Simulated assay, not measured.
Amino acid sequence: MKKLFTIILIGFSTMAYGQNLSMIEKDLLKPLKKIHYWSGMGYQDKLSVADSLTKENSLLKKKLLKYTKNRPSTLGYDFKALQKEGMTIATSADKKFRIYSWDTYTGGTMHFFENVYQYQSGKVTLSESIGSSEDAKGFFSEIFTLQTDSGPIYLGYLHSILSTKLAYQNICLFKIENAQLKDAKLIKTKNGLNNSLGFEFDFFSVVNRKERPVKLIYFDEAKKEIKIPLVKANGEVTPKFITYRYTGKYFERDKK
Rank of each mutant, 00 (worst) to 15 (best):
131 G>Q: 08
233 A>P: 09
178 N>K: 14
10 I>D: 09
181 L>T: 02
159 H>E: 06
66 K>W: 07
158 L>H: 05
202 D>Y: 12
62 K>N: 10
177 E>V: 02
183 D>F: 13
64 L>K: 13
120 Q>P: 04
233 A>Q: 14
199 F>V: 04
213 P>D: 08
77 Y>W: 07
8 I>Y: 14
88 T>R: 14
58 S>I: 00
77 Y>T: 00
114 E>G: 02
217 I>M: 12
10 I>Q: 07
49 V>G: 00
50 A>F: 09
165 K>D: 12
135 D>K: 12
168 Y>V: 05
95 K>E: 15
103 D>A: 08
34 K>Y: 11
176 I>H: 01
123 K>C: 01
6 T>R: 13
120 Q>T: 09
222 A>G: 08
225 E>A: 13
254 D>I: 10
159 H>I: 07
199 F>C: 02
230 L>C: 05
13 S>C: 10
228 I>S: 05
107 G>H: 05
241 F>C: 07
115 N>H: 06
130 I>P: 01
68 T>E: 06
152 P>L: 00
144 F>Q: 14
30 K>F: 07
224 K>H: 05
68 T>R: 03
38 W>C: 02
78 D>I: 09
221 E>T: 15
179 A>W: 06
249 K>D: 15
174 F>D: 00
199 F>D: 00
54 T>K: 08
156 G>D: 00
189 T>E: 09
178 N>Y: 03
218 Y>L: 02
161 I>Y: 10
78 D>G: 07
102 W>L: 04
29 L>I: 12
178 N>H: 14
160 S>E: 13
97 F>L: 02
84 K>N: 15
44 Q>C: 06
99 I>R: 05
207 V>W: 08
187 I>G: 04
147 Q>F: 00
116 V>A: 02
173 L>H: 08
84 K>H: 11
1 M>Q: 12
67 Y>P: 00
160 S>K: 15
224 K>S: 08
217 I>N: 06
215 K>V: 06
174 F>I: 01
18 G>Q: 10
150 S>M: 09
201 F>V: 07
146 L>C: 06
230 L>P: 00
237 V>Y: 00
254 D>S: 11
29 L>S: 14
60 L>D: 06
226 I>F: 03
247 T>A: 06
219 F>L: 08
29 L>Y: 09
91 T>I: 13
188 K>W: 10
19 Q>H: 12
78 D>H: 11
115 N>W: 03
143 I>S: 04
116 V>M: 04
254 D>G: 00
